[in-house]
Design a protein around this nucleic acid. Sequence first.
DNA 1: TGGGAACCTTT
DNA 2: AAGGTTCCC
Length: 295
Amino acid sequence: MSSPSIVWSDWQPLVLPEPLSPAVLTEVVDGGQTFRWNHSSDGIWQGVWADCVARLKPAVPDGLLWSAPPELAGMVANELPSYFGAGLRFDRLVDDLPWRSDPHLARCLKAFPGLRLLRQPLEETLLCFLCSSTKQIVQIKQMVELLAQRHGREIAPGIHRLPTWTELAAVSEEALRSCLLGFRARYVNQTAQILAANGDWFNRLEQLPYHEAKERLRELPGVGEKVADCVLLFGAGRLEAFPVDVWITKTMESRYALEGWTPQQIAHFGRVHFGASAGLAQQYLFAWERAQGRS
DNA sequence: TGGGAACCTTT
DNA sequence: AAGGTTCCC
């Protein structure tokens, strides 16, 4: 993953409003929100988003240091805090969740202190989650890495950003299939045709309130309820979005007695029960449920 | 409106 | 054998 020809800047602090332990950092960058961060060595993570490449290293006690190729360091210094949602006080948002009356939520919050939602570039968030259906994190990472290497611009030696939608519109469905997308290749291809023909599409999307933005996203081939909510939550800062996947379905059925509910009903319950930051609650429930599966 | 099919890798 | 879903009949 790391290229020997890359020079890295000196480590500098990333200032966040709340501490982030190494374990919770792992959950943030490799727990299903994003798919382009890889463990390089000794707890160092290397990631790519938009035109940025960075390394991240936990620092005692719960701080974070970053490094980037010198020619990108200015941009990364600017973009990294917003990517990590440094402008949001997640501790306050968490405190507003109904943990006082919801013991399961309280347990999840305690298990992953400082868990954050990333604020990712909207356009590539859509691409990643279009690739995500019935795939696990490792497989999604594999697909988007191939898309980047073969169709995205090189931003540092050996490191490529994800292709833009304009670039994707020129890639054949066949070439997308060879990036292991399978039936998702058609979704990406058709979506790219629509987006490339509407230069203003993402700007207009960001102006819309949550429900209308979700409807607009769902007009795109391959975007259903779950993918639309992931795109809005991780790429547009809509914290009320409550993506319901198999893990959340499992959690809500067993911990909230919602057996037999449809995913749509579960999503509605989630937004009502957890409130304005339902998506943040979702991330905690999701992390906790996955951790149960592993242990 | 519910269930099967859509790819292809990993388990 | 089934996977962190969508689409279509």
